[in-house]
Structure formats: structure tokens, C-alpha cells
């Protein structure tokens, strides 16, 4: 797909994220917005998903499950459910639960929300694919704060041990978690050195919200002959695209007011 088309999709997804959390009056805009380019690239340029229940489809695990508004917006843009449904996010009876539920939403490959677990399930999916001799690939998206969970490193160790060349892990390195900067709360740096030491073929994208740069880096990484798993460390801005949310821990899990949402959407459309 043309970069300009991807950029247009990313805009729509940002607008949908704002509409979801505003209608729910709760949810997580910051970490949803920071990963928009990563998810857009995967869903609209890289992953092969003929149907959401195709056993040979590529899989995506949103290990940072609180970014559910982003995942729902991508699946909606894919045409898996109508746009109006996004406005039922987090409401009683909705398919669109606060955190993704694989039994409720077509296209959600794994139930997540408790940090540090999704990555291990992605390793399991990749292991199953390898075992069955299937061609599908597995992609997982981790938060940088999430990397503080010990279970993440158990999963990464297993991925290298089993030489899961069909697994690619994205780290949304926005350097924010709930209580502040990741580097202040509990440093996980240097991330890329740790990933390499754990056996991952790793690239760093200095502006992970530049979809062109992200695509070149990811395409190059995926084309490499590589005996084991791969990782993309994307330096991003939390809240990207909405200036009053950008790089603010306070917008991790707070919904905008109607007026703030209007302002946000205006900025996204003009951007």
C-alpha cells in the first residue's frame, strides 16, 4: 500500500480511538495513540489475514491489552464490524470489552489485559506454527513498561531457544508508564542490547510514529535470513497526534471530555 494511504488509515484510526474512549468516558488513549503506526503497518501492509478464522492467517497479539481502542479501530477499519459498534466500547453487553476478548470480537487473536502474559501466548502460537510446518507469522506488541514483568523475559528466552523465526516482537518505547517515565520508575534500558542478548535480531526505529521509516525498517528486518525471533524497538510519543496528550503520563488512562475530543479530532484531521 502507498504510504499516503497508510497515513490516511492511521488518521482514521486515531479519530476512532478518540471516539471510543470519549463515548466510554474511560479507557486508554495515550498508549493507543503511540502504537497507531505499528498497528496500521501490520494490519494494512504486512499481515496476511484472508479471514479472521483462517488457520493459516498471520496472528497479532496485543500484549499491552489496554490499547484495545487501537485494536478495535484496526479490526473495524478491516471491515470486521460496523463503525457504530466502536461507540459501545466498555459498555455493559458490548463485544468491545475494556480489554480484548478473543471470544467476543472477530479478529482478536488472544485475550489480554494483564500485562506480561500476551507475549508468552504469542510464543506459543509461533511454536504451534513451527510444529505444524505452517507459513503463518506471529506479531506481538509489548509496552515498554510491560517489559518490567519477569514473564516477558521468560517468553523472550523461550522464543530464542525454540528459534522462532516466525515471531516478531514490537516494543512501543514511549518511555512512559502510569507512575511516570519508564527510566524513572524502573529502568528497562538498554532495551535493544537486552533483546540482542536474548537472541533477537533487533532493529531500532528512532521515530516509530513515522510510518515510512517504520515500514522500511520492518520490511528490511522481515526480509533478513534469520535463524531466530526478531524485534523492533520503536521509539514513539505517547498520545501521538493530539498535542495536549503527547508525552503526558496523565493521559495514559483518562478519557477526554466532549470538548477536548472535538479539539483532538480537529487536530488529527488537520495533521
Amino acid at each position: 500500500m502507498e504510504i499516503n494511504e497508510l497515513k490516511e488509515i492511521a488518521k482514521q484510526i486515531r479519530i476512532d480511538i478518540i471516539n471510543e474512549v470519549t463515548s466510554a468516558a474511560s479507557g486508554h488513549p495515550g498508549g493507543s495513540l503511540s502504537s497507531v503506526e505499528i498497528a496500521t503497518l501490520l494490519y494494512f501492509d504486512i499481515m496476511n489475514i484472508p479471514a479472521p478464522d483462517d488457520p493459516d492467517r498471520d496472528r497479532f497479539v496485543l500484549s499491552k491489552g489496554h490499547a484495545s481502542p487501537l485494536l478495535y479501530a484496526c479490526l473495524c477499519e478491516k471491515g470486521l464490524f460496523p463503525r457504530e459498534e466502536l461507540l459501545t466500547f466498555r459498555k455493559l453487553g458490548s463485544h468491545l470489552q475494556g480489554h480484548p476478548d478473543m471470544n467476543k470480537v472477530p479478529g482478536v487473536d488472544m485475550t489480554t489485559g494483564s500485562l506480561g502474559l500476551g507475549i508468552g501466548t504469542a510464543v506459543g502460537m509461533a511454536l504451534a506454527g513451527k510444529y505444524d510446518g505452517k507459513k503463518y507469522r506471529v506479531f506481538a506488541l509489548l509496552g515498554d513498561g510491560e517489559m518490567q514483568e519477569g514473564s516477558v523475559w521468560e517468553a523472550l528466552m523461550a522464543a530464542a531457544h525454540y528459534k522462532l523465526s516466525n515471531l516478531t516482537v514490537f516494543v512501543d518505547n514511549n518511555n512512559l508508564q502510569i507512575d511516570g517515565r519508564v527510566s524513572d520508575v524502573m529502568s528497562i534500558y538498554p532495551i535493544e542490547d537486552k533483546l540482542r542478548a536474548f537472541g533477537f535480531e533487533t532493529v531500532v526505529v528512532e521515530d516509530g510514529n513515522d510510518i515510512g521509516a517504520l515500514r522500511s525498517a520492518v520490511t528490511d528486518l522481515l526480509s533478513r535470513e534469520c535463524p531466530g525471533p526478531r524485534a523492533v524497538v520503536a521509539r514513539t510519543t505517547k498520545g501521538k497526534g493530539v498535542s495536549f496528550m503527547e508525552d503526558q503520563a496523565a493521559w495514559h488512562g483518562t478519557a477526554p471530555s466532549r470538548e477536548q475530543a472535538e479539539e483532538a479530532i480537529k487536530e488529527i484531521m488537520e495533521g
Partner: peptide, 8 residues
Amino acid sequence: VGEDGATH
């Protein structure tokens, strides 16, 4: 807990 749902 409310809106966060089952996982929380």
C-alpha cells in the same frame, strides 16, 4: 472496578 472488565 467497572469498565476495565473481566481481566481487572
